[in-house]
Design a protein around this nucleic acid. Structure first.
Lengths: 348, 348
DNA sequence: CTGAAAGCGCTAACAC
DNA sequence: GTGTTAGCGCTTTCAG
């Protein structure tokens, strides 16, 4: 027992208005070649019946769905969800719908079913918003060549022949360390994110390079690896303080770990920024309310998302218009230094 | 110049296998009435061509898309994105795709285009995951009756004839206040969320009721209204301390405001939990690393999402199977008290 | 067991 | 200007 169809069809509108479906089609698509009276009559029927054309049927015939596939992971973390939010806003504005897939784990490499699900629903393009971790990009150049649907990748190392949009983590890291140096700190340690993350590797590289270029030695005992969480920050800082006792400042690879660090510092009676300066990364909302407020590197995820959506739509619509295909390119976006109290070394 | 179709069609598979499209259809749908040899031959061709049936075409003919519409708002905040994450996991498990819409603002009442977009794409059901705020639910009972597509609402006040899944904020609030009372605090203030939020009203009602039932007076000067942010917590606590000087504990309506409160308390030299006990709400990840760690009420957004997805699928599939329609019902989920240091009053 | 015909809701191409 | 025919990719009758 199937319930009655929820929506009016073009056929019903046509017969109610006493015209052919073709004419209805012309009216709802705003084509010029309909007489004003007919148009009016049809529009009234459309209104009265609450007729809504089926995007599905249109997608089938036009071979174009006006839908983007978005693949994400770790939505329960603030970074990925901010990115996603930026994507929804930009897609809405561009008139595209979004089909969402979330990988169960960041490092998930079981991507075929994801692509299949997206492709079987005829998405016009895919935004791969999963950060590059470990081997989770190995497949990028092994995608079937006949998969001629554009993909834009977020948060990964730029590569030939693919489209990438990323925050410039290296530039951000350099800013963080330079700022600490300018404040007069001379023994700057680092707490990195998990080093299988590309972003974490960029940040630690920036720390190393900046120190070396300024003439400082960088030893292995000067840094430790965390896992992005506050708790890891709290536990690894203990080790770092022990193995690098002369340390007077730390560049911490994200704000959450910095929070853990600050907790331990308080417990140990270390004053921030007097005894130890701290700079984080991300500029999460709470960081302005840490004790003391945290100096950090702001990455603007909204811009990343906006650029990614605009990029993929440009590629899609160029293909559709039969223009020359847009060449894949990488876009790196700059970060901003937000100076707060945790790094303002009192001038002695 | 249209590029060649990216995917093989059933027709191509059929002619390559030397059978009718019908037979291919039977094979890919696992129907029994195909001879083993034919089946094998078809499967090989399917494999070789990488054939993937079009979910779009299927949706059209079956009048069933296996797609859920999800409407959310404020994805950049942690609550909504955790909810969404739970929905993606549950939907994936159930074999449903997700079409995502994010309202630009929580209080957005411009919902027609949202429904139109989802309906035109033939979603089988809608999960309305926007919290109830101000007038943003006025339309619930005015939806066109012929919109016979199931909707499950999250985070709203239970109402007749609609399906709702919510955390029991009232029960959570009662637990928070009872805990403070048990700890021996006797002058318990409250910092509420914005009172146009249903969830905030539930929490403040729980605070009032619990105190009154225990025989305490509740005066207007005993509470102030925040806006969920750490900064608002920091600013309203000043006012509250002034107008309620004998206050020895606070139930703060979320963890982020509690963070702001703690910052100010430190500055004023108030010891937590000795001079003032604090209980938050939400159990955000960071709250375990506040100084001191924050006692709070945990709401399990994953369960909410899971229940909501299961509920809507039950409704959808009952309708599809021609069973009696499932009656709309409300589900309220209990919270858990997480005791940490901010509320552990030293026994004198 | 298999195929032919019809059609889901819509639009492109052509007639009139 | 408007209607007719055909068909997007698939599945559901119904013959055989």
């Amino acid at each position: 027992m199937r319930q009655k169809p929820s929506r009016a069809t073009i056929k019903e509108v046509a017969s109610a208005a006493g015209v052919s479906t073709q004419t209805v089609s012309r009216v709802i698509n705003g084509r010029p070649d309909v007489s004003p009276e007919t148009r009016k009559r049809v529009q009234e029927v459309v209104e009265r019946l609450g007729y809504q054309p089926s995007a599905l049927a249109r997608s089938l015939i036009r071979q174009r769905s006006h839908t983007l596939g978005v693949v994400t992971a770790g939505l329960k973390y603030i970074g990925p969800s901010r990115i996603l939010s930026g994507i929804t806003m930009a897609a809405e504005e561009a008139g595209y719908a979004l089909l969402l897939k979330e990988l169960p784990r960041f490092e998930d490499n079981h991507i075929e079913p994801i692509f299949q699900a997206l492709i079987s629903r005829h998405v016009d393009g895919i935004i791969w918003a999963v950060p590059e971790i470990g081997e989770n990009r190995n497949w990028v150049h092994q995608l079937p060549v006949d998969l001629d649907i554009p993909i834009v990748y977020l948060a990964m190392n730029p590569q030939e022949n693919i489209s990438v949009v990323s925050i410039d983590n290296y530039q951000g890291g350099r800013m963080a360390v330079s700022h600490l140096l300018e404040q007069g700190y001379r023994h700057i340690g680092h707490i990195s994110g998990p080093l299988d993350w590309w972003e974490a590797r960029q940040r630690i590289a920036a720390w190393k390079d900046t120190l070396k270029e300024t003439g400082f030695e960088v030893e292995d005992r000067h840094w430790v690896e965390g896992n992005w969480s506050s708790s890891s920050g709290a536990s690894v800082i203990e080790k770092l303080l022990e193995q690098y006792p002369e340390m007077d400042a730390i560049f911490v690879a994200n704000d959450q770990m910095a929070l853990g660090v600050m907790q331990v510092a308080h417990q140990k009676g270390l004053r921030i920024p007097e005894d130890i300066g701290i700079v984080g990364f991300d500029n999460i909302v709470e960081s302005a309310y840490f004790l003391p407020s945290l100096t950090t590197i702001q990455q603007d995820q909204y811009t990343v998302s906006k650029v990614a959506v605009e990029e993929i739509i440009k590629i899609i619509e160029a293909g559709w218009a039969g223009l020359d295909p847009i060449a894949p390119r990488s876009v790196m976006l700059e970060t901003t230094l937000i100076v707060r109290n945790s790094s303002l070394r009192p001038t002695t």
